[in-house]
Amino acid sequence: MNMKVKVLGTGCANCKRLEAMVREVASEAGLQVELEEVRDIAAIMSYGVMHTPGLVVDGELKVSGRVPSKAEVAKWLTASSKS
């Protein structure tokens, strides 16, 4: 089953950077990722995020308010793909 990854962000520069990072990590690790960009502010805030960008992997908020490192993203994605 594909893992569902959501990037929460209203289109700010960091949000785009995070999204690009997720794509890069997924393609490098050969993971099937269903990537969704969540731009609706109400939907973003339903995760309790008050500072974008945010990253949600399989329904679980991994990070908010900062752009994580590539290594962190890789860790979350690979961990999620194995569970």
Binding site: G9, T10, G11, C12, N14, C15, I41, I44, M45, V49, M50, H51, T52, P53, G65
Partner: peptide
């Protein structure tokens, strides 16, 4: 003050 925090913080 940036677009990444002002609106969500206001709503929050």
């Amino acid at each position: 003050f940036c677009s990444c925090s002002a609106v969500p913080m206001f709503i929050g």
